[in-house]
Simulated scan of single mutants.
Amino acid sequence: MIRTIAIAATLAILPLAALVPTPAGAQFAELVRQRAEGWEIGPFYKGRSRSPGMPARAVQAGDTAYFDFPWPDARAGHVHYVTRPTGPLTGAREIVLRYRIDGERGVRFHPQEHPDRKATLSLYFQRRGDNWKARGRYATYRWYAPEGMMGPVTPGTHEVRVPLDANWVAVLGATSHTAPGAFADALDNAARVGFVFGSRGGRGHGVYATAPARFTILDFRVE
Protein backbone atom coordinates (compact mmCIF):
# COMPACT_ATOMS: atom_id res chain seq x y z
CA MET A 1 0.00 0.00 0.00
CA ILE A 2 1.32 3.43 -0.89
CA ARG A 3 1.71 5.31 2.38
CA THR A 4 2.87 8.59 0.86
CA ILE A 5 1.74 10.37 -2.26
CA ALA A 6 3.65 13.54 -3.15
CA ILE A 7 5.38 16.70 -2.12
CA ALA A 8 3.26 19.23 -3.97
CA ALA A 9 4.56 21.76 -6.39
CA THR A 10 5.72 24.53 -4.09
CA LEU A 11 7.87 24.84 -1.00
CA ALA A 12 4.80 25.76 1.03
CA ILE A 13 3.11 22.37 0.49
CA LEU A 14 3.14 19.43 2.86
CA PRO A 15 6.05 16.97 2.80
CA LEU A 16 5.44 13.27 2.31
CA ALA A 17 5.35 12.53 6.00
CA ALA A 18 2.48 14.94 6.52
CA LEU A 19 0.39 13.23 3.86
CA VAL A 20 0.12 10.05 5.89
CA PRO A 21 -3.38 10.21 7.44
CA THR A 22 -3.16 11.97 10.80
CA PRO A 23 -5.52 13.99 12.97
CA ALA A 24 -6.08 17.47 11.56
CA GLY A 25 -4.32 19.14 14.48
CA ALA A 26 -1.22 16.99 14.11
CA GLN A 27 -1.14 17.55 10.35
CA PHE A 28 -1.29 21.33 10.82
CA ALA A 29 1.48 21.19 13.42
CA GLU A 30 3.64 19.22 11.01
CA LEU A 31 3.06 21.81 8.27
CA VAL A 32 4.08 24.63 10.59
CA ARG A 33 7.22 22.72 11.62
CA GLN A 34 8.25 22.00 8.04
CA ARG A 35 7.71 25.59 6.90
CA ALA A 36 9.79 26.83 9.82
CA GLU A 37 12.63 24.41 9.12
CA GLY A 38 12.75 24.99 5.37
CA TRP A 39 15.85 24.08 3.38
CA GLU A 40 18.95 23.29 5.42
CA ILE A 41 22.39 23.94 3.93
CA GLY A 42 24.95 21.51 5.30
CA PRO A 43 25.29 18.75 6.06
CA PHE A 44 25.67 19.23 9.79
CA TYR A 45 27.95 16.81 11.59
CA LYS A 46 28.75 17.07 15.30
CA GLY A 47 27.05 20.46 15.36
CA ARG A 48 29.12 21.98 12.55
CA SER A 49 28.13 22.69 8.96
CA ARG A 50 30.14 21.02 6.21
CA SER A 51 29.20 23.86 3.81
CA PRO A 52 31.76 26.52 4.83
CA GLY A 53 30.89 30.10 4.05
CA MET A 54 27.17 29.30 3.80
CA PRO A 55 24.23 30.17 6.05
CA ALA A 56 22.47 27.33 7.86
CA ARG A 57 19.31 27.72 5.75
CA ALA A 58 18.14 29.02 2.41
CA VAL A 59 16.08 32.20 2.39
CA GLN A 60 12.40 31.52 1.81
CA ALA A 61 10.66 34.05 -0.43
CA GLY A 62 7.02 33.17 -0.96
CA ASP A 63 6.84 29.89 -2.86
CA THR A 64 10.54 29.87 -3.68
CA ALA A 65 13.77 29.72 -1.69
CA TYR A 66 17.25 30.88 -2.59
CA PHE A 67 20.87 31.10 -1.50
CA ASP A 68 24.02 32.67 -2.92
CA PHE A 69 27.08 30.65 -3.90
CA PRO A 70 30.35 31.43 -2.14
CA TRP A 71 32.77 33.27 -4.44
CA PRO A 72 35.32 33.94 -5.96
CA ASP A 73 37.25 30.79 -4.94
CA ALA A 74 37.19 27.82 -2.58
CA ARG A 75 38.71 29.87 0.23
CA ALA A 76 35.43 31.81 0.40
CA GLY A 77 33.49 28.58 0.98
CA HIS A 78 31.45 26.04 -0.97
CA VAL A 79 27.90 24.68 -0.88
CA HIS A 80 27.49 20.90 -0.41
CA TYR A 81 24.06 19.55 0.71
CA VAL A 82 20.69 21.33 0.50
CA THR A 83 18.01 19.20 2.15
CA ARG A 84 14.74 19.27 4.05
CA PRO A 85 12.99 16.74 6.31
CA THR A 86 10.79 14.07 4.78
CA GLY A 87 8.91 10.97 5.80
CA PRO A 88 8.98 7.56 4.11
CA LEU A 89 9.35 7.64 0.32
CA THR A 90 7.77 4.22 -0.03
CA GLY A 91 5.66 4.00 -3.18
CA ALA A 92 6.84 7.30 -4.67
CA ARG A 93 7.68 7.29 -8.40
CA GLU A 94 10.17 10.12 -8.89
CA ILE A 95 11.82 13.22 -7.44
CA VAL A 96 11.59 16.47 -9.38
CA LEU A 97 13.56 19.70 -8.95
CA ARG A 98 13.16 22.85 -11.05
CA TYR A 99 15.70 25.58 -10.33
CA ARG A 100 17.21 28.78 -11.69
CA ILE A 101 20.79 29.99 -11.47
CA ASP A 102 21.45 33.71 -11.94
CA GLY A 103 24.93 35.18 -12.02
CA GLU A 104 27.20 37.85 -13.35
CA ARG A 105 28.19 37.50 -16.97
CA GLY A 106 30.99 34.97 -17.35
CA VAL A 107 30.47 33.36 -13.95
CA ARG A 108 31.75 29.81 -13.68
CA PHE A 109 31.14 27.09 -11.11
CA HIS A 110 33.83 24.72 -9.87
CA PRO A 111 33.83 21.63 -7.64
CA GLN A 112 36.09 22.52 -4.72
CA GLU A 113 37.59 19.02 -4.59
CA HIS A 114 38.17 18.65 -8.35
CA PRO A 115 38.13 22.20 -9.80
CA ASP A 116 39.14 20.94 -13.25
CA ARG A 117 35.92 18.90 -13.54
CA LYS A 118 32.38 20.00 -14.43
CA ALA A 119 30.23 21.06 -11.46
CA THR A 120 27.14 18.92 -10.98
CA LEU A 121 23.90 18.81 -9.02
CA SER A 122 22.52 15.46 -7.88
CA LEU A 123 19.15 14.69 -6.36
CA TYR A 124 19.55 12.92 -3.04
CA PHE A 125 17.86 11.30 -0.07
CA GLN A 126 19.13 9.96 3.24
CA ARG A 127 17.98 7.25 5.59
CA ARG A 128 17.15 8.08 9.20
CA GLY A 129 19.91 7.37 11.73
CA ASP A 130 22.93 7.86 9.48
CA ASN A 131 26.18 8.27 11.43
CA TRP A 132 28.05 9.72 8.39
CA LYS A 133 30.81 7.10 8.67
CA ALA A 134 29.73 5.15 5.52
CA ARG A 135 30.88 1.90 7.15
CA GLY A 136 28.98 -1.36 7.41
CA ARG A 137 25.25 -0.82 7.01
CA TYR A 138 25.76 2.94 6.89
CA ALA A 139 27.36 2.57 3.46
CA THR A 140 23.80 2.41 2.06
CA TYR A 141 22.17 5.21 4.07
CA ARG A 142 22.86 8.01 1.55
CA TRP A 143 21.61 7.75 -2.05
CA TYR A 144 22.40 9.90 -5.08
CA ALA A 145 20.85 10.11 -8.55
CA PRO A 146 22.50 8.04 -11.32
CA GLU A 147 25.43 9.68 -13.07
CA GLY A 148 23.53 10.29 -16.32
CA MET A 149 20.70 12.05 -14.45
CA MET A 150 22.64 14.79 -12.68
CA GLY A 151 21.67 18.41 -13.29
CA PRO A 152 23.81 21.23 -14.70
CA VAL A 153 25.29 23.99 -12.56
CA THR A 154 25.14 26.77 -15.14
CA PRO A 155 23.14 30.01 -15.46
CA GLY A 156 19.56 29.49 -16.61
CA THR A 157 16.44 27.58 -15.61
CA HIS A 158 16.76 23.79 -15.37
CA GLU A 159 14.63 20.81 -14.38
CA VAL A 160 15.83 17.43 -13.15
CA ARG A 161 13.53 14.39 -12.88
CA VAL A 162 14.85 11.13 -11.49
CA PRO A 163 12.60 8.05 -11.21
CA LEU A 164 13.00 6.10 -8.01
CA ASP A 165 13.26 2.89 -10.04
CA ALA A 166 16.41 4.24 -11.75
CA ASN A 167 19.80 2.89 -10.66
CA TRP A 168 20.51 5.20 -7.68
CA VAL A 169 24.03 5.17 -6.23
CA ALA A 170 24.95 4.84 -2.55
CA VAL A 171 27.77 6.74 -0.91
CA LEU A 172 30.41 4.02 -1.47
CA GLY A 173 29.25 2.82 -4.88
CA ALA A 174 26.55 0.23 -4.26
CA THR A 175 23.50 0.79 -6.45
CA SER A 176 19.79 0.28 -6.02
CA HIS A 177 20.07 -2.59 -8.52
CA THR A 178 22.96 -4.35 -6.74
CA ALA A 179 21.58 -3.68 -3.22
CA PRO A 180 17.79 -3.55 -3.70
CA GLY A 181 17.01 -4.48 -0.09
CA ALA A 182 19.16 -1.68 1.33
CA PHE A 183 17.63 0.79 -1.13
CA ALA A 184 14.10 -0.26 -0.16
CA ASP A 185 14.97 0.09 3.52
CA ALA A 186 16.33 3.60 2.87
CA LEU A 187 13.09 4.57 1.12
CA ASP A 188 11.01 3.15 3.98
CA ASN A 189 13.06 5.05 6.55
CA ALA A 190 13.91 8.25 4.66
CA ALA A 191 14.60 11.28 6.84
CA ARG A 192 15.94 13.96 4.48
CA VAL A 193 15.56 14.69 0.77
CA GLY A 194 16.99 17.32 -1.54
CA PHE A 195 20.08 17.79 -3.69
CA VAL A 196 23.85 18.04 -3.45
CA PHE A 197 26.63 19.87 -5.32
CA GLY A 198 29.92 18.40 -6.46
CA SER A 199 31.26 16.52 -9.47
CA ARG A 200 31.34 13.05 -11.02
CA GLY A 201 34.02 12.04 -8.56
CA GLY A 202 32.44 13.54 -5.45
CA ARG A 203 28.70 14.09 -5.59
CA GLY A 204 28.26 16.17 -2.42
CA HIS A 205 31.77 17.51 -2.03
CA GLY A 206 30.93 21.15 -2.72
CA VAL A 207 30.82 23.83 -5.42
CA TYR A 208 31.78 27.52 -5.47
CA ALA A 209 31.36 30.32 -8.03
CA THR A 210 33.90 32.65 -9.57
CA ALA A 211 31.56 35.67 -9.33
CA PRO A 212 28.29 36.56 -7.57
CA ALA A 213 25.59 33.99 -8.37
CA ARG A 214 22.29 32.90 -6.85
CA PHE A 215 20.50 29.55 -6.81
CA THR A 216 16.68 29.65 -6.61
CA ILE A 217 14.53 26.60 -5.89
CA LEU A 218 11.45 27.10 -8.04
CA ASP A 219 9.76 23.73 -7.51
CA PHE A 220 10.55 20.58 -5.60
CA ARG A 221 8.31 17.56 -5.28
CA VAL A 222 8.18 13.81 -4.84
CA GLU A 223 5.49 12.17 -6.93
Rank of each mutant, 00 (worst) to 15 (best):
G202H: 10
V32F: 04
H177Y: 11
P15F: 02
G156P: 00
A6K: 13
Y99K: 06
A65M: 05
A65L: 07
V169N: 00
F197A: 06
Q60D: 06
A209D: 10
F183W: 15
T154F: 08
A74H: 05
Y45R: 14
D130M: 08
G62H: 01
A74Y: 05
T120Y: 02
R3E: 08
G156I: 11
D165T: 09
W132S: 10
V207A: 08
G202P: 00
H110W: 03
G53K: 11
L31Q: 11
E113M: 13
F220E: 09
T4D: 00
R203E: 06
T178F: 06
R161T: 15
P88N: 04
P23L: 08
L14C: 04
A209W: 09
E94K: 13
F197I: 06
R192C: 06
K133M: 04
I5F: 03
R142F: 03
I95T: 07
P146S: 09
E159T: 15
G136A: 13
H158S: 08
G204T: 12
R75L: 05
V96H: 05
H205L: 09
D130S: 15
T4N: 01
G77D: 03
G173T: 01
T157V: 15
L19I: 08
V82H: 01
N167Q: 11
Q60C: 04
V96N: 01
G201Y: 10
L19P: 00
G62I: 11
I7Q: 02
A74T: 10
A139K: 11
F195N: 11
E104V: 12
P15I: 02
W71D: 00
R75P: 00
M54L: 14
V82W: 01
L89R: 01
T83H: 02
S176V: 03
R161E: 15
R200E: 14
T154M: 09
R108S: 10
T90E: 13
T83E: 04
R48W: 13
E37T: 14
T86I: 14
G91Y: 09
R98S: 13
W168A: 03
D165V: 03
A184H: 08
Y99L: 07
I5L: 06
A92T: 13
V207M: 02
L11A: 10
P163C: 15
P111E: 05
V196E: 01
W132T: 10
W39V: 06
R84W: 04
A92F: 04
G77I: 12
F69I: 08
L97D: 04
D68A: 13
P155K: 00
R3C: 03
P152R: 05
T210L: 10
R137K: 14
P43L: 09
S51I: 09
A56H: 08
P21L: 12
T178P: 00
M1W: 04
R93Y: 03
D130R: 12
G25R: 10
Y138K: 06
A29D: 07
G25A: 11
G136S: 12
D68V: 10
Q60W: 05
V171L: 06
A56W: 05
F197V: 08
A134R: 14
R221M: 11
T10V: 02
G202N: 14
V162L: 12
L187D: 02
R98G: 07
G53I: 14
